[in-house]
């Protein structure tokens, strides 16, 4: 379909420095497409938190962004350890991140709550030992 823009990114799990490049790229494109700054900010923060999670918790993964006429969908998929208790992971302040991650400025347990706050829909599919798929939708 001509009115759907699809973007695909590989998110490197070994390079903390480059984490967030995909989100920054999406942000730039949405800006060029003329989206409202508040929509852009919500999409990019939610995707950035998700990208960081894939890097610090799951050894990287892939990100797919689809821009539809009425919504923006972000799908983040990894083959990491999975999330045993999603409700617990969603609570503010819950984090299994080690101190090494905290010393980098993350691991406050605010990522998933932020992703929920900034999106209209958040779905998490996760299987322990297999991986995690996070789908987020922002209506435009």
């Amino acid at each position: 379909m001509a009115d759907v823009l699809k973007l695909h990114f590989d998110v490197d799990g070994d390079d903390f420095t480059s984490a967030g490049e995909a989100s920054a790229d999406v942000k730039k494109r949405l800006r060029l497409m003329g989206y409202d700054p508040e929509i852009i900010r919500r999409v990019s923060i939610a995707m950035y938190e998700g990208e960081i999670n894939m890097v610090i918790h799951a050894g990287g993964g892939v990100a797919d962004v689809s821009v539809y006429p009425d919504k923006i969908e972000i799908v983040l998929e990894d083959k990491g350890p999975g999330i045993p208790d999603i409700a617990l992971a969603m609570s503010e302040g819950f984090s299994t991140a080690p101190d090494t991650v905290r010393s980098l400025g993350f691991g406050a347990g605010m990522g998933l709550p932020n992703m929920k706050r900034y999106t209209d829909e958040l779905h998490i599919d996760s299987k322990v030992g297999e991986g995690t798929k996070v789908t987020m939708i922002v209506n435009t």
């Binding site: 420095t17 984490a19 967030g20 989100s23 950035y48 400025g105 993350f106």
Partner: peptide, 9 residues
Amino acid sequence: AQVVRTAMM
């Protein structure tokens, strides 16, 4: 670098 990315977002 994530400080700059956070500021960008």
